[in-house]
């Protein structure tokens, strides 16, 4: 830590984030990102997704390495359980996005986090994806995220941090608001 480092350090470089916001204000094109993944069917309901590159800050970017994700269904769905279900990945995404946001917001507000733990639950009715009941949607009917947080702040300040994290979360926004999804297909050679 340098002399100018904040007294509270949750491990989030907030100066860099705010610096980016200031820099991007004058160059809106740099803020345009594209996130990508490629998915390959393996067998049955098992697929393997790779994530490595993305576009942003005006050019092609990459993670420090390639990440892979198996998705499948458990034996209860007559599958081999090579990975969590795609629906569970949504919970992974939401919980990790909100938790990262909590760390960043707490850092910006100089609140020291001692522990942050959340349980993410989604209510789901199988009748939807089975096509058994047109009144039931395929997706979740409700998602609940329960946080238990130990931090050096008042209850109201902690609540405000969690609220602000929701306000600035990409995944929370993607789940709570309609998004246009284009799915295209071409014949592979």
């Amino acid at each position: 830590m340098t002399d100018t480092a904040p007294a509270v350090d949750n491990g989030v470089n907030v100066d860099a984030l705010f610096g980016a916001r200031t820099a991007l204000a004058g160059a809106p094109e740099l803020a345009k990102f594209e996130w990508r993944s490629t998915v390959e069917w393996v067998k049955g309901t098992h697929s393997l997704t790779e994530v490595e590159t993305f576009y942003g800050l005006g050019g092609e970017q990459a993670h420090t390495k390639k990440f892979t994700f198996d998705a499948d269904h458990p034996p209860q769905f007559a599958a081999e359980d090579h990975g969590i279900t795609p629906a569970e990945y949504v919970l992974v995404a939401l919980g990790s996005c909100l938790t990262a946001g909590i760390a960043a917001v707490a850092q910006a507000r100089q609140v020291k986090l001692n522990s942050v733990r959340a349980t993410v639950k989604a209510d789901f009715d199988l009748h939807g994806i089975l096509g058994a009941d047109p009144e039931v949607r395929n997706g979740f009917s409700n998602i609940t995220v329960d946080y238990a947080i130990d931090a050096d702040a008042s209850d109201a300040d902690i609540a405000a941090i969690v609220a602000q994290s929701q306000k600035r979360s990409a995944v929370y926004d993607a789940l709570t608001n309609p998004t246009n999804v284009d799915v295209n297909v071409t014949r592979a050679s």
Binding site: A159, A160, A163, K167, D173, N177
Partner: peptide, 12 residues
């Protein structure tokens, strides 16, 4: 689906 959070933020 963010109504609850918006209300919570306004209350805070």
């Amino acid at each position: 689906g963010s109504l609850r959070n918006l209300a919570a933020m306004a209350d805070l």
